[in-house]
């Protein structure tokens, strides 16, 4: 079964005279465990595509199925159910400023209900991301790279079936980028997580299973590497 199945997807912003169509007839399938990189010029529609697949925006025309759930006409409850099975890594960290690193990460777990091992699981993933000593720090006292790693921990802690990431390594230095990518790759092979990542980082592009290129709202290239 395809994890993501898109056929004839269009998307427009605005209405009336100011309508701007930004996606044109996107057709695409992503399989389980694939690590896919999405490239393209600024404004080509990468973020728009990600927000549609992540159920953060309503689908207008075309057929989209994510994790077997048809998104056409899906109600908010159905979209929430999908979002819980998905991990988001945004370009900005979007951490809650009143919560510590651990509390922020726990938010990614608590959405499935409070479980006894939650605290320990949050600690483990922060440990993997080399944040063990900043576990009780609030975001204001963390560096940009540390905040981004906390946000990544929050996305990964709930064992998502898909990860949508939009330039997640932009705020990270070389070592941390390598660390994060290695972690995402490891999850992909160990748990069969599918990853769709917008990036321009050549190191990541090199290690991808598949590279999609967008231009002017269309997928212009689909290159399988392995």
């Amino acid at each position: 079964m395809d994890i993501i199945d898109i056929a004839g997807l269009d998307h427009s912003y605005g209405q009336g005279e100011t309508t701007l169509q930004v996606l044109f007839n996107i057709t695409l399938c992503l399989g389980q465990g694939e690590f896919v990189v999405l490239m393209g010029a600024s404004g080509s529609g990468k973020t728009t595509l990600l927000s549609l697949l992540g159920c953060l925006r309503a689908v207008q025309t075309g057929r989209v199925a994510v994790l077997g759930q048809d998104l056409n006409g899906a109600d908010e409850a159905a979209r929430i159910a999908i979002r819980r099975r998905v991990g988001f890594i945004f370009q900005a960290h979007n951490l809650h400023e009143s919560l510590t690193a651990r509390q922020n990460v726990l938010m990614g777990l608590d959405v499935h209900g409070r479980l006894p091992g939650s605290e320990a699981a949050a600690g483990r993933i922060l440990d993997l991301l080399v944040l063990a000593d900043r576990i009780d720090s609030v975001p204001a006292t963390l560096s940009g790279g540390q905040k981004q790693r906390v946000a990544i921990a929050r996305a990964l802690v709930g064992n998502p079936e898909i990860i949508f990431a939009d330039e997640p390594t932009a705020a990270l230095d070389r070592d941390n980028s390598i660390l994060v990518i290695a972690l995402l790759r490891r999850l992909g092979s160990a748990r069969g997580t599918t990853t769709l990542m917008v990036t321009h980082d050549p190191r990541i592009i090199d290690s991808a299973d598949r590279i999609l290129t967008m231009a002017d709202g269309r997928i212009t290239r689909d290159e399988r590497r392995k």
Binding site: L56, A81, R83, R84, F90, N94, H96, M107
Partner: peptide
């Protein structure tokens, strides 16, 4: 962000 994560 919490909405994106799936909180109702």
């Amino acid at each position: 962000t919490f909405k994106a994560i799936g909180y109702p």
